[in-house]
Design a protein around this nucleic acid. Structure first.
Lengths: 115, 115
DNA sequence: CTTATATACATAAGTTACTTATATATAAAT
DNA sequence: ATTTATATATAAGTAACTTATGTATATAAG
């Protein structure tokens, strides 16, 4: 698995992507996140395991995610959900991301319309 | 000088910010870039010297920028302009950035409209 | 039947782009 | 006289990645 595009750009946005997907879908496991991101972005964003799993562990350690392992088809899946703290944080980080994109819009003359 | 917000998010976007400002303004020096970014973003993006100057040096080394030192008020200024390669690259990186923001829009449900 | 692909997680080593801190130097303002 | 603004540079440390490797099961292909 490898992500060809957006070499530097993904930096800093992986956390909010994970948090937002969990906010939307309630309960997901790591591999599922990689597949959903791939589908939604038409294969343009391909998360690497080496980035995703440490990011999940970090978010769990920080108390934003709760994890529970489950056996499905004799294979271990680690499901994640947002904690209470995570539900608060996702809103904060989302606002930050929007604000940053608004500023990038001004600097790069992208003519975005944030609704 | 320090940038409070967008801790991770700025990563990967500094290069395109520099290139785009030079495309727009033709000829700028480092300190001027920090001030223009500060003004345009209402003080929300504050470039650090430790990030800016190495980034300028790297872009110059890669042949995207041309530099010339000038004395103004007895102080040395290093002016940068886009090279031919830089003029091509800024368009490529701009498209990449737009594409990435479009994908982030899909993942985060931001409802932006890229024109 | 054995090999490749998909599913599923984890981590170690290396790279890169930052932050923070420090350094130098002149000009202008307090 | 001291601080703030202007102007550039670099060294040390950190965080978030990439790349590579490892383990293990299920399924499809040849």
């Amino acid at each position: 698995m490898d992500s060809i595009k957006y070499k530097g750009l993904l930096k800093g946005s992986l956390q909010i992507i994970i948090l937002k997907l969990l906010q939307k879908n309630g309960r997901m496991y790591g591999y599922e996140i990689t597949q959903v991101v791939k589908e939604i972005t038409n294969g343009e964003i391909l998360l690497t395991e080496g980035a995703l799993y440490p990011a999940l562990h970090k978010l769990e350690k920080e108390g934003l995610l709760a994890a529970s392992v489950e056996l499905v088809d004799n294979r271990a899946r680690k499901y994640y959900t947002l904690s209470e703290k995570g539900r608060t944080e996702v809103e904060i980080k989302l606002k930050e991301t929007k604000s940053f994109m608004g500023n990038l819009d001004l600097l790069l003359n992208l003519n975005l319309k944030l609704t």
